[in-house]
């Protein structure tokens, strides 16, 4: 446990001593701010029309505005996470510090754990930043906040699973750019594979759909907590971390 904290501390220093974390946060804040504003604006326009089914029902619709907003932000996250994760392990391999880590009394899972927690910390900061938007909305006009909390949990789980994927691809290459590209490709595939399921049909169609992140995040976005989808994200996280652990061992056998 102590080792994990040491790695975590060092990783956070890397992110916050370099412009990396700040650039990512600034970009994320800007884009998410824009999405939230435009989503809210659209809602206001629609609800102004007397015939609108949304009219007057602010409680329900606030959750929908925020849900839709978080769905959009997941796509932004898909672009940001490859950049955030790319250097986690690949940089260590490139600069030779990997040798230091591997010749220290440190277990693979402690290394992976520390790196993963540091990335989760950044994701948590990002989530907390966009958490301000609904908070402001709530202060103006209180709404049913539990569904919004579930949507946020879904957003965080999606980010956490994507980070696990990014961390795995970061172990596979010495070049951070390759790691970022493979992560992005993997996330994109996991995102759009549900579109393929309709044309495939049958068992394969179901398999492809269930593999897709999009089909598992929707329930969270709508504000319902489903055990199936929760299991999907948590097993995805552990599976990818397990793969990273194995891959680190395999590097040493091939080096």
């Amino acid at each position: 446990m102590n080792n994990i904290m040491v790695i975590l501390k060092k990783e956070l220093k890397h992110y916050f001593y370099s412009p990396m974390a700040y650039i990512i946060m600034a970009v994320f804040l800007f884009i998410s701010g824009y999405f939230f504003l435009s989503g809210l604006d659209r809602y206001v326009q629609v609800s102004m029309q007397a015939a609108s089914p949304y009219a007057g029902d602010f409680e329900l619709t606030a959750a929908m505005v925020i849900g839709g907003f978080l769905g959009n932000i997941c796509i932004v996250l898909m672009f940001i996470i490859p950049l955030l994760c790319m250097r986690a392990v690949s940089e260590e391999r490139k600069s030779g510090t990997f040798e230091l880590l591997m010749t220290s009394p440190l277990k693979n899972w402690e290394l992976i754990g520390g790196k993963y927690l540091s990335l989760l910390t950044i994701l948590f900061i990002l989530t907390a930043i966009i958490g301000i938007f609904p908070l402001v909305l709530y202060m103006i006009m209180p709404f049913y906040y539990k569904t919004v909390l579930i949507s946020f949990a879904g957003f965080f789980l999606f980010g956490a699973a994507s980070i696990a994927i990014g961390l795995f691809f970061s172990t596979t290459s010495k070049n951070p750019v390759y790691a970022a590209l493979s992560t992005f490709a993997a996330l994109l595939l996991l995102w759009i594979s549900s579109w393929l399921s309709d044309s495939l049909g049958g068992f394969l169609g179901i398999a492809v759909r269930e593999l897709s992140m999009i089909s598992h995040i929707n329930s969270f976005i709508k504000g319902t907590l489903s055990l199936k989808d929760l299991t999907y994200f948590i097993s995805m996280i552990f599976y990818m971390l397990f793969l990273s652990d194995l891959y680190i061992d395999s590097i040493r056998w091939r080096e």
């Binding site: 220093k13 600069s95 510090t97 990997f98």
Partner: peptide, 10 residues
Amino acid sequence: PEFPPVYPDL
């Protein structure tokens, strides 16, 4: 190791 295993940004 042959190349000192240091982190330039620390």
